[in-house]
Design a protein around this nucleic acid. Structure first.
Lengths: 226, 226
DNA sequence: TTTTCATTCAATCATGTTATTGAATGAACA
DNA sequence: TGTTCATTCAATAACATGATTGAATGAAAA
């Protein structure tokens, strides 16, 4: 039965790569769109060499792929199922690891007591034109792909730019994923300022993975879409 | 942003556990149903102590849980999403790792040229009563849960017991999962003997995970079903 | 209470992994 | 053709992991 063992060893190559918090963080950023090594190093706080090594491991394991554009090499997820993989992994962790449950309930409790908005609900309501969809991620991530019609005000600058939003319309905010704090903060701020605001249930990667429509700013960053 | 790092480190605990072929093999067996440490050690060929250590790691990572019954401790998957996790992982590996594609095409090519049967098709046709559903796994695994109405003849003994099957009915065979060779061998043998035979697309774990009905022989092995 | 025995623990060695440094590629652009 | 500079490589040290022993638990059965 060497076949079974060999096969499981191959699957384990992919598993190993998921066994480092640093790499999971890099995958998180890559789930927003393609990024150069330097961009990833900056955003994750790792050295460029270290980032490069992690990216190569992930590439060898088939989770990401690289493509040169001009002087830089852009990495991206090998396919959208990587997002599904992380979603399942996180769901299991949240259900079975007490530490995760605690951390999540400490940091991500919605003080507003409102249910998050599902992707389907957002689609229906955005279509009706009665809500403002707000993307609170940094501009580069917005540029690489966002929910159609979404307005981009990064979480950092929301306080100063809040006047740009129409107070008569409900706001639905989203960010990088279910554990990204930006949208929680944004909703809290908006509600404090008298807005009617709710969070999208998940983030942009999950939206993309579900096959919902996507809008792109300009195309240099948005590479081959298989 | 210590929160993000801590959270990813927690998720990585679960990832680490997927980074060993041995553990993936144990998870495969557990996906068939609950098993004692000794049973798992026997079937996987590992020492009891080594098996125990792997099981404990998986338990700490929240992938499996343990329950004592009499003198033995039975391990089982923490929940059915573990099967989904492995399905996504394997799908990614099969798509992006050349080695996996090669191994699969070497060992699992269907020489019969027939498409496998989907779970939905099996349900429809089994209900009509015109097909024999054949479980070619070992009897213990059949006992711990199987497709309703399935006949159990383990792959080893199929040749000697083939006369028990009605040659006028089509046979749909299944085993442990998409990479288990039993059902491929069974279909080849049956077709050589003049049967009309096809494979179920996936195996019993995937059937269970999809929420399809399950039949159990007796209950001591089938523990709490949350 | 005592015995039994499936499971776990503890200690060890060999092996693999991570982060860091500084140097080396090598494709792109002038 | 030569220069630039983003990325990768190579070497190292600290650390984590896996398999193997044999002994130690401790719950169940006698």
């Amino acid at each position: 039965m060497a076949f079974k063992q060999d096969l499981n060893n191959q699957f384990a190559r992919m598993g190993k790569v998921l066994g480092s918090g640093r790499r999971l963080e890099l995958l998180d950023y890559l789930a927003q769109g393609a990024r150069s090594v330097e961009q990833l190093a900056t955003v994750s706080g790792l050295s460029v060499a270290n980032t490069s090594q992690h990216l190569q491991k992930m590439q060898q394991a088939g989770l990401v792929r690289a493509e040169r554009h001009g002087k830089q090499i852009f990495y991206q997820l090998a396919d959208n199922e990587v997002i599904a993989l992380m979603t399942v992994l996180r769901g299991l962790a949240e259900r079975h690891l007490a530490e995760v449950r605690e951390m999540v309930s400490m940091h991500l409790t919605r003080r507003d007591g409102l249910e998050p908005v599902s992707a389907e609900e957002l689609l229906a309501r955005a279509w009706s034109g009665l809500v403002t969809v707000l993307d609170v991620r940094p501009p580069e991530e917005y540029a690489a792909g966002h929910v159609p019609g979404a307005v981009n005000i990064s979480a950092e600058r929301l306080r100063e730019k809040i006047a740009m939003l129409d107070p008569s319309r409900e706001v639905i905010a989203y960010c990088r994923g279910p554990y990204c704090t930006f949208s929680f903060e944004a909703v809290a701020l908006l509600r404090a300022e008298g807005f009617s605001a709710r969070r999208l249930e998940a983030g942009f990667p999950e939206w993309k993975q579900a096959g919902h429509p996507i809008e792109t700013e300009h195309t240099p960053l948005e590479l081959t879409h298989d």
